[in-house]
Nucleic acid binder design. Structure first.
Lengths: 137, 137
DNA sequence: TATTCATTTGAACAGTTGTTCATTCGTTGG
DNA sequence: CCAACGAATGAACAACTGTTCAAATGAATA
């Protein structure tokens, strides 16, 4: 396997030599790193990041966090630069991702952000606080 | 404008009536929300979320954080399920986003995560700590 | 029941993205 | 200089995504 050969040359470059078993030891180290890395959480986490990676959706989350009250589609629509259909699509995606919650009242639908959304927003803006409480599953 | 009409009906539904100026007041409130929302930070933040929205890239960041040492492409490649070219592309994207840093040494390139990457990972995993230090603009 | 309304949903389109393959770039050593 | 090597880069392709338009829901009202 080419991978092992390359790892062997890496060890030689780093340590000057490579004894029998050194490659296996490095591979064991790497597997230990992999175990600690919690890659099983990646699908869930990537879905959250993905939901926040579109500017329209991120703007909506920002607006919901900034408003200290729930907002409905018709209040959000004039604040972002897309059609109300696009706002609805965005809110649907955010709801599926667990970043906003919806309340129905008559013909109106009120949206508010979850704590997870606020925590991610704080993290990306570089704020070091921990408004996140003991959130989530 | 249809937007203002809808806002007027919203006020009527919420308060029972809508006096002259109420719509303008609501619009003013919404604009104030928009000001507080820091939407000017959205392009930067969305780029960060976007960089972490692909499973390969997120796995790589996890691995770099879990390793308490720098890793090179040849160490990462066996831990993720793509070609080393894809790993290199992913690292390039992450570097551009400011989520990993690169160190050159001979033929090898060593990568390590930035504090911002660690902070976002902690946030998405639901940890309420603040390893992020006083980072960033 | 029929109409109006706020919102949702589905289809369709252009634009974007993650991957692999092939090539190129720097570096090391003969 | 030449060959070998780790890594980066570009082209190409399939897969995906955000938007709008048009139509459908479900609730209020006449």
């Amino acid at each position: 396997m080419a991978t092992a050969d390359r790892l062997e040359r890496l060890i030689v470059d780093e340590c000057g030599s490579c004894c029998d078993g050194d490659v296996d030891a490095l591979i064991a180290d790497l597997n230990a790193v992999c175990d600690r890395a919690r890659t099983d959480r990646t699908p869930t986490a990537a879905a959250l990041f993905d939901a926040l990676s579109a500017e329209t959706r991120l703007d909506i989350v920002r607006l919901l966090v900034a408003a200290e009250d729930e907002l409905c589609v018709c209040e959000l629509e004039p604040l972002v630069d897309v059609s109300d259909s696009a706002v609805s699509h965005a809110l649907s995606t955010l709801t599926d991702a667990g970043l906003v919650e919806r309340r129905k009242e008559g013909r109106w639908r009120y949206y508010r952000p979850t704590e997870r959304a606020a925590a991610l927003l704080a993290a990306v803006d570089g704020e070091a606080d921990g408004t996140a409480g003991g959130a989530a599953e």
